[in-house]
């Protein structure tokens, strides 16, 4: 039995705002990164054989 931890959607949304603050309002980069993480999370929890490529 393995306990897995993940960030809640609410926290991810708030982290988007935190990154926007750090970059002086340029939060869109984080959207790309989070899309990548969502894709990676789906890949890890499904039987999909290919690891997704990070969008650029």
């Amino acid at each position: 039995m393995v306990h897995r931890v993940r960030t809640t959607d609410d926290a991810l949304e708030k982290l988007r705002g935190v990154y926007a603050a750090l970059s002086g309002g340029h939060g869109s980069d984080l959207d790309v990164s989070m899309e990548f993480n969502t894709a990676r999370r789906k890949a890890l929890t499904s039987s999909a054989p290919d690891f997704p490529v990070a969008p650029r």
């Binding site: 393995v2 306990h3 897995r4 931890v5 993940r6 960030t7 982290l15 935190v18 993480n37 999370r41």
Partner: peptide, 30 residues
């Protein structure tokens, strides 16, 4: 903005790092 994410009165850098690491890993074991 990072402090405002937390409900606790004195969030530490350790708390913040755990949260950010979890967001980066996606889904991880402890």
């Amino acid at each position: 903005s990072l402090i405002n994410i937390f409900d606790s009165s004195k969030p530490t850098i350790r708390d913040a790092k755990l949260l950010v690491s979890a967001a980066d890993l996606g889904k991880a074991t402890r």
